[in-house]
């Protein structure tokens, strides 16, 4: 198994004069499911299109399975891409959609039939061969798009926001489906998403991107528990992020004393990491809502608003009243700038 199955070296990508991705370096391990995560405009889709060959790099190289494919045309790269819109061919049946690429390879008809049917079965669409894409549900279209790419036995399968067009229930179903297919075929998958929960749930590793650069790279657990920067922390649900200045926490609004000695320039707490009901600090409740297992408070403080989740057993504090709280050291995540 190659540690550098897909290797991006000093890759610079641009649209006209605007540089979308400057000097990117990334290695993808063979057989892994890796997520490119980030807000829109972070360069994740651009990077994916470059791997597919739909975008020619301004400089740098792309190596796949030991072969430099930087100048290889998209139709000769052997890469699969499942589009966000699925991009199914509306004039062809499900069967012909999947057989499309095989037919181009001038394969014998029996083999085309065999592989197409197997591909359709892999994604659980057996029996739907004659349907046109328009006659299928969103989830089925998604599976069909997946099958169409998989039958080509691509070296790498790219997926662009694979779950974004599905409703909540189907999204869960497709998540498991994608993992199952990946385990079964062993294909290396790179998928692009702006949804951190999707990346956390699916990926073996996550590449968090910002402004065309890698902000942090690690396993879902690493990113979730140990975000390195304010940007990563915010993306991973740390809603309370403040600067440290000597003995104080500082925001644009004001400051509060910090109860311990900090060694990093910034500190962050999840709402669940804020201790409510007791503590040296206090603020006024400006919003409070019931959320099942806990109660979500928004507390007005000298630092601005602090979001805090209180266990449901703690006494409810009415709107406008003062509430005691603490930002404990144990729950604080240390961040570099």
């Amino acid at each position: 198994m190659s540690e550098k199955y897909v290797s991006l070296r000093n890759l610079t990508l641009s649209y006209g004069k605007t540089v979308a991705v400057p000097n990117l370096n990334l290695d993808v391990v063979e057989g892994e499911l890796i997520a490119l995560l980030g807000p829109s405009g972070c360069g994740k889709t651009t990077t994916m299109r470059a791997i597919a060959g739909l975008l020619t790099p301004t400089s740098g190289t792309i190596v796949i399975d030991g072969r430099d494919v930087t100048r290889v045309a998209a139709n000769k790269r052997g890469i699969g891409l499942v589009f966000q819109s699925y991009a199914l061919f509306p004039h062809l049946s499900a069967f012909e959609n999947v057989a499309f690429g095989l037919r181009l390879q001038k394969m014998p008809e029996t083999e085309i039939r065999q592989r197409t049917e197997a591909g359709i079965a892999t994604v659980g669409l057996a029996g739907f061969e004659k349907r046109k894409p328009a006659e299928m549900s969103g989830g089925q279209q998604q599976r069909l798009a997946l099958a169409r790419s998989l039958v080509m036995e691509p070296k790498v399968l790219l997926l662009d926001e694979p779950l974004s067009n599905l409703d909540a229930r189907l999204r869960l179903e497709m998540r498991t489906e994608l993992q199952r297919v990946q385990k079964k075929t062993g294909v290396t998958m790179v998928f692009v998403t702006h949804d951190q929960s999707e990346a956390l749930a699916l990926a073996d590793r996550i590449v968090l991107m910002k402004d065309g650069k890698i902000e942090q790279l690690g396993t879902p657990h690493q990113l979730y528990a140990e975000p390195a920067t304010a940007f990563a922390a915010e993306f991973m649900g740390f809603e309370n992020i403040f600067r440290v200045q000597g003995e104080n926490l500082v925001s644009d609004f004001g400051q509060l004393p910090l109860g311990f000695k900090a060694t990093s320039p910034m500190l962050a707490w999840r709402p669940s990491g804020v201790q409510v009901g007791q503590g040296p600090l206090s603020g006024r409740v400006s919003a409070s809502s019931f959320a099942g297992g806990h109660r979500e408070y928004v507390i007005d403080t000298a630092l601005g608003q602090i979001k805090a989740d209180a266990p449901i057993e703690t006494l409810e504090v009415p709107l406008g009243e003062n509430i005691a709280f603490d930002l404990p050291k144990s729950n604080a995540r240390q961040l570099s700038a």
Binding site: A52, N75, S85, F100, G101, L104
Partner: peptide, 26 residues
């Protein structure tokens, strides 16, 4: 949608094949 042509290209079509096999029928 133009991503249909891109899909065709990634499945092995040349630009011309993508046009005749995917764009023209549609």
């Amino acid at each position: 949608r133009s991503d249909m042509e891109e899909a065709a290209v990634l499945l092995g079509c040349t630009r011309l094949q993508a046009f005749t096999k995917v764009v023209l029928p549609n």
